[in-house]
Structures are given as structure tokens and as C-alpha cells.
Simulated assay, not measured.
Amino acid sequence: MAAPSLLILAQQGRLEFEAIIFAASLRHCAPDFTGRLIIAEPQPEGAWSGHGTRIGDDTRALLDSLGAAIAPFTARHFGAAYPYGNKIEALSVLPPGQPFVFFDTDTLITGPLDLVPFDKARPAASMRRKGTWPVPPLYGPGYAGIWKSLYDRFGLDFPSSLDLSQPDEHWERYLYFNAGWFLGPDPAVFGQRFLDWALSVRHDPPEELACQTLDPWLDQVILPLVIHSLGGGRPGSGLAGLDGDVTCHYRNLPLLYARESDRVLEVLEAAVAPNRIKRRLREWEPAKRLIYQGKGRSKVRPLFADGLPSREKPIRQALKKNGWWWD
């Protein structure tokens, strides 16, 4: 079976620089990976009309030299009003009938991606998640009632999605993913179902969702339904590296320096060391200060020398207080 296509998103600003880091780390850590790297670029029209979205020419040339193909698409349904919807609509740029893996752009490849057994994988997604949705109201419905209403909406078997090793009404009993990576055998089928069901729930949510917010969680609400409907589920042990030693979803460069391992830092800095990458990446303030001026190691890392808080919020607060945060 051929290696899957990798899909990330990029547009003007932070995402184009994160795309450079992704592509550079892929070539550094997985030089034998034979799948295509496709970078979906929303166009400044449709749901992104009036917004500057096109990747800069210098970035475009660098990504091309790193073996990435930039694929434009027009967002019709989400765009600036719900940027997370890009990952739903961008699946349309992939060749139908061929396996794919979507990654959030703020991901670092840290190991041999070519050795991950994608050919044996059912549709699945990242388990590096927390119980962010739903938030059951005091007087109900609970987790089961909320999730079952969605499975019923689309004619899915709810009981077979449950992790029965977890207690009733504990959030981990119910199929829930982080949308930082997800994969499947056919992006056309996956993407159309993802889009149709997301629009259905956004425009006409079941009454059990009356107290729930769908922004920014809509993609993560619909993702498990799509995966379950296509015969997938929680990832098996073969995919463990995608939430472990093969990829790192760092989410934000200051957070990477605050909480990731020394090995992750070493991979990042080695991957972006070549001059052709450095020349462009230095134009992005976080990379300039944290990577190339060494402030990530000399200033950010020491802030947490006595240990990391267990929650992300105080980490962010400490970074902002000390001037080491960029949105």
C-alpha cells in the first residue's frame, strides 16, 4: 500500500511559518517517507472574502524546495467565522480514494513517520485530548444523553462506540478525539460526511445540545461520529507514535519551549538550522527570539525549572506575564 498523503493548512501569517517548521521537520526526521506533503491554502474569497490568506512568495518558494505542494481551495461554509472549519473543507484538495493523514500545522515531526503502519490503520484520530466537550448541565442531560442524540441524528450505533472500561457518565467512556491529527482511507468520503454532518449540527443541533457551545468544538464533536460511521475508532498501538515519539502537537512555539522534552527542542532546532530555512523563519518574531536568539532555552525554559503546572492555563499566564507569548 502506498504511503498516505499528508495534509496541513497554511495561510498568511503564523500558519505559513508553522508550515515551514512542519515541512522541515518531516524532511529532517523522516527522509524516507514517500507520501506527498500537501499544504491546503484557503483563497481570499468565499467564506474568507476580505481577508489576506495567500502565503508569501518567499514562504511558497521555500516550501516547494522542501517538497511540499501547495493546493488552493475556496472555503464556502466556515472561513473567517470558524477557522477550524478549514480542516473540514480542505479535505477536498486531496486525491479521492487514497489514504490520508491530516495534521494541525503546529505539529513537529520528531521520528520516522515512514515506519508508522498506516496501511493497517482504520480511521482514527488523536487521543491527546481532555474532556472539553460537552459540559453537561446540572439537571441533565448527561454525557450519554448528549452523545446519543448525535448518534441517533445520523443513524449510528451508539453502544458500540463506548469504552466500557470507563464508568458511566465519565467523559472518557464516550468516543472523543483531539482533531490535531486524523486519518482515513478516502478523503472524498470522509470530507463530504464531515462537512454535511457539521453543517447539520451547526444549523439544527439536537435539543440535547441546547446548553452546549459548538464554537470552537464543532470539528471535535463531529469527528468521532464520522470516524465511527466509517468503521474506525480509537487508534491502536501501531499509531501510538502519533501522540508520542513520532510527532509532537506543540500548539504554540512558547508552549513547546515551556513543556516539551529536551529531545523535542533538539529536533526543532536541528530541523530549522539550514540557512535557507533560517533566512525566512527569522522573519517570524517567535522563531527569531525563541529559536535563533536562544531565548527559548535561556528565558522560557527557566520559568518552569521547578516543575510545570498540571494545567495549561497557568503556563500561558506565566509566559504572557514575562513577555514570551505571541498569538
Rank of each mutant, 00 (worst) to 15 (best):
L253S: 14
P235Q: 08
A69E: 12
A24T: 01
L115E: 10
I8V: 15
E285F: 14
P83S: 10
E207Y: 05
I315N: 09
A258L: 05
G79E: 00
P185N: 08
E41R: 07
A125H: 03
G241W: 01
G56V: 00
A188I: 00
Q11P: 00
G85A: 10
W324S: 09
H28Q: 11
I39S: 01
K87E: 04
R202E: 04
G155D: 06
V300K: 02
G191S: 09
R289I: 08
D219S: 04
Y84S: 14
A19G: 11
Q12C: 13
L303R: 04
P96E: 01
T132K: 12
E260V: 09
A47G: 07
P286Q: 04
E18I: 06
L113M: 13
L218T: 07
Y250P: 01
G79D: 00
R60Y: 03
P83H: 09
A125L: 03
Q11A: 14
R202S: 11
F177S: 15
Y82G: 12
I21P: 00
I88Y: 10
H249S: 12
V267G: 13
L138Q: 12
F177A: 15
V201Q: 08
P254G: 11
H77A: 15
K120R: 11
A71M: 11
G191K: 05
A121D: 02
S237K: 09
A270M: 05
E16K: 05
L209A: 14
L223E: 02
P141C: 13
W133Y: 13
G111S: 08
C29A: 15
K120Y: 02
D215M: 05
V246I: 15
G85M: 02
R276C: 13
D168S: 14
I8S: 02
L7G: 14
A270T: 10
K130N: 11
W197T: 01
L281G: 13
A40W: 00
D157I: 04
E312P: 00
L225R: 03
S237T: 03
P134I: 06
A198V: 03
P137H: 09
E312L: 15
P216F: 13
A125C: 09
S5N: 09
S49C: 11
P224H: 02
I315L: 03
W171E: 07
R280H: 07
V267Y: 12
D106S: 14
P96I: 03
L281C: 12
F103A: 07
V221L: 14
A198N: 06
A80I: 06
E283A: 15
V272C: 13
P123I: 07
Y82M: 12
S298K: 10
F22I: 06
P254H: 02
V221P: 03
E208D: 12
P4C: 13
P4F: 07
D104Q: 09
S161R: 00
I21W: 00
F78V: 04
R259D: 00
G232A: 11
G56H: 05
F194S: 10
S237A: 15
P309I: 04
I277H: 05
R297N: 10
S25Y: 04
G180N: 11
N322W: 03
G232E: 00
A19S: 12
D219Y: 02
I222N: 10
G111D: 03
G294N: 07
L265N: 12
N86L: 10
Q11T: 02
R122F: 01
E283D: 12
V189L: 15
I109F: 02
R153A: 13
